[in-house]
Design a protein around this nucleic acid. Sequence first.
DNA 1: TTTCTTTCCGTGTTCGATAACGAAACAAGT
DNA 2: ACTTGTTTCGTTATCGAACACGGAAAGAAA
Lengths: 345, 345
Amino acid sequence: MAGITIKQIAEKAKVSVGTVDRVLHNRGEVAEATKKRILAIAAEGNYKTNVFARSLKLNTSFKLAVILPNDNEYWQMQNEGILNAAEQYSSLGVSVEFFTFNRHDRNSFISESFKAMESSPQGIIMAPLLHEDALTICTNLKEIGIPFVLVDSNLAGTKPLAFIGQDSQQSGFLAAKLLNFGHENGHKCMIIRDTHFDSLNKTLDERVDGLKKYYAANKFSPDLIEEVELKKTEGELPAKLNVYFDNNEPIHLFVPNSRAHEIAKRIDIIGKKKLCRILGYDLIKENIDCLNDGLIDFIIHQNPKIQGSLAVEALYKSLILNTDVSQHQFMQLDIITKENLMYGL
Amino acid sequence: MAGITIKQIAEKAKVSVGTVDRVLHNRGEVAEATKKRILAIAAEGNYKTNVFARSLKLNTSFKLAVILPNDNEYWQMQNEGILNAAEQYSSLGVSVEFFTFNRHDRNSFISESFKAMESSPQGIIMAPLLHEDALTICTNLKEIGIPFVLVDSNLAGTKPLAFIGQDSQQSGFLAAKLLNFGHENGHKCMIIRDTHFDSLNKTLDERVDGLKKYYAANKFSPDLIEEVELKKTEGELPAKLNVYFDNNEPIHLFVPNSRAHEIAKRIDIIGKKKLCRILGYDLIKENIDCLNDGLIDFIIHQNPKIQGSLAVEALYKSLILNTDVSQHQFMQLDIITKENLMYGL
DNA sequence: TTTCTTTCCGTGTTCGATAACGAAACAAGT
DNA sequence: ACTTGTTTCGTTATCGAACACGGAAAGAAA
């Protein structure tokens, strides 16, 4: 049942374990005839290398470098998810080092990436938010042979060990469905953006695209969709929005980043929540509070713990267990409401 | 960084590894003074037992017995999820054996359980659908010291290593929310049951309870809720339902088991889908098709792969890594619509 | 003092894989 | 015959933990 060991192979083939080992590792210095004999016996006995013995001997310690931003709770959760997963594997020799970059500063990303590479880790987990720079880093990684996993958004043209993230466009499509549930001919929808803060974030564009695609697919009038800029001024709402509220016209709000709570709270203050459905992203604390208070209707979420697990697991599988990993791992589009909130983490 | 080893502890404490080992395993025969000294050094050096060495020496092979039904696609997915997870750990010596029982036959459950126990596995995964019988089995398992994980539904009074499943009542609560989304004063809702087939299934009752609780919590009239029995006759709809349809009255349908597709298809045939929202459970193939065709609006789901992983992982952690596992692991209440269907598995 | 228990602790082997090191056998060149 | 090189293979120590076994030391009983 369990598979033959090297020593048993050696006995059967009447050679020493050294010879068997040389054959199994293609280290040469073995006569062709005995090599064949050994391989045959190994195959017949269903030889599998004993991970425990191997790892013990090699005294493996796997250092993973994590290159992520950490400038809001969303990314903090991602970081924690990875740390969490890594700790699970700590007894198997896995450790992580975080290289946190500022996503509004290319130099920061580049320098952190190089720091990560110089620490010569066995694997890298990276969020390629700055596409062009990430691209050069990734080709670099390919050359020096460090496997890397991309999280959150993918990078066409690179061949990561795995990509783990959401289908952003589909998430926007889903958002449109939820906002328009029960409205056969579509409903007025306002997209709230923050182009300054999110200037480089391709993911948000994809989400918005998805929403628009839903309207198109259902033959809703494109005029139903408007985009407005979130005012930075504390508590103030976009002017266009106030026009609707002043006329008591119902309207739905789509906030493609994690800051739906800001809008929701402002609307609550002026008592206009009844007029709108609000959908946002990411189950951060402020959004959770708003869900609980009924100020936000839906949050689309991806479980950062699972994402972290998958990322670490992908590297673990590849590095320690030496097995294949699937290259595209799309995270579930979690729909979170007040009612399933408590089990969403 | 990596923890101290036994040998290093021995050197520091000026004793032999044997003594250190006796201390760490509480095997006695060590003077109190040296014991304290050793423990102090171990703690200071952050000693962690090397899983590789430990497992190598103990030459552990972990056989897990799985006691589940397999009479529909839902359970099939559960079985697959567990098999899948077990295969992940196969290189660590984990193997599984399935003991499939017929959930309408107590003797089948009992005999399979005994077969499982007689195979003397290191751990057991069980769905305690037949509560009373499962209870006696579990107390039995406690006595002979085989750790067990319960999936799907819990069993009060037993102390499983872990329970992994959904909060059924909360899922009904969530269902009510989704069905009534946009209806401020609540909406007519029909609960479709199949008391013959589901006679023993406590989970379904809890789901229905949850739905009713939502109506109560929102001060909706309890008269809005009705229960009907699903006609076994092919294609026929419950009479009460037809009354509503004949009058073109809108009504929502709550199907607490995995057979929402049956109802949905019958309603589609008579062309009355526009009159109702339909919510069901479990992402089995027929339900997936109905979601895709717009015949079902929502499916509440739990990821069977994740559930399988968690179950196997709980045993793995406890048996191999020797770490603690959390006793209640509630699965997420996944809301599945046509739009996030593709990433729900 | 001798003998016998306890109490305490060290030694040595084992698990399976890995790889450095060196031994044996043989051919070829001087 | 003697050196040198090449190919092929065996020996052995090592990783860290687990545990059986035996032995030393200290005290108790004779």
